[in-house]
Amino acid sequence: MTAPASRERDASRRDLRRDGGRLVYIMGASGSGKDTLLRLARAQLQGQDRVLVAHRYITRPAGADEASVYLEAAEHARRAALGCFALHWASHGLAYGIGVEIDAWMDAGITVLVNGSRAYLSQACDRYPGLCAVTIRVNAETLQSRLAHRGRESADDIAARLARAQAVFDIPPDCEQVSVDNNGDAADAAAELLAIARRRCHA
């Protein structure tokens, strides 16, 4: 790569970096209840709350509990190439994306909650320095029960997800991280999550 091309690439990366002070990036193992908590948090929003939950674009049909839009794999890839996603990643053979509309929302002073990926946190922090990473925590027994109940994975898939839930993921040293316990009443955990978002509105 020539020097001018390298400088152009670096400048482009700087252009993509945005203040993430109004971004709440939700993480947790599959089955930890992220979608449920986001749905319940959205239901608790008041008219004066400047908070929105971003939907995801996923290459599988969305469940009833999800704020998600299904896209075929080819269309998802096409939109990624066109720059339609602020964040996008692959996991368990699926592709996920968060639309660039969240940039306009944050520019308007709105705090945005997104259902993200632990493995993609470093890239998210690179684009949105200042984001708040929230880990949804559940114990192994609760996680196994939830995965089995939703009926989406095979026994081998559940075992793989349980193993991945114990994996250690890198947290950027300057990334703000908090945890929300979701072993009890989901409404209480959702209220805690919403309180985090509301504090970001006034930070």
Rank of each mutant, 00 (worst) to 15 (best):
R42G: 04
V51E: 02
A62V: 01
A43R: 10
Y57D: 06
D49I: 10
S68D: 14
H55A: 05
R78N: 02
R56P: 12
P61Q: 12
S68N: 09
L38E: 04
Y57Q: 08
R50F: 02
E75I: 12
I58F: 09
L45G: 03
A41L: 10
A74W: 09
E75Q: 14
A43W: 03
Q46Y: 00
G47Y: 05
R56F: 03
L45M: 11
R39I: 00
L71N: 04
A64P: 14
V69C: 11
E66M: 06
E75S: 11
H55I: 00
D49A: 05
G47F: 09
L40K: 08
L52I: 11
A77D: 14
Q48P: 05
T59K: 01
V53N: 01
L38V: 06
G63Q: 14
A67F: 13
A73F: 03
G63L: 14
E66S: 03
R78P: 00
R60C: 04
A77V: 04
Q44A: 15
R50W: 06
A54Y: 14
L45T: 04
L71S: 07
T59A: 05
A74S: 14
E72C: 11
A77H: 08
D65P: 02
A41C: 07
R42N: 08
Y70Q: 14
L38D: 06
E75T: 13
A64M: 08
H55Y: 10
A64G: 00
V69H: 13
Y57K: 07
G47L: 13
Q46W: 08
H55Q: 07
Y57C: 03
S68R: 11
P61M: 05
A74G: 10
R39E: 10
S68A: 15
L52T: 10
A64T: 12
V51A: 02
R42M: 07
Y70N: 07
A54R: 04
Y70D: 02
A62P: 11
D49R: 05
A74T: 14
A73E: 13
R60G: 01
L45R: 08
Y57F: 15
A67N: 14
E75Y: 03
T59C: 09
V53Y: 06
Q44Y: 00
S68W: 04
A41H: 07
R78I: 00
R78A: 15
L71E: 07
Q46F: 02
Q48F: 13
L71P: 00
R42K: 10
G63K: 05
A67Y: 12
L40Q: 10
R78T: 11
T59H: 05
V53A: 08
L40W: 05
H55C: 07
Q44E: 13
A77P: 00
A67G: 13
A54W: 09
V51I: 15
S68K: 03
D65A: 14
Y70V: 04
L52H: 13
I58H: 06
A43G: 08
R56W: 05
L38F: 06
T59D: 02
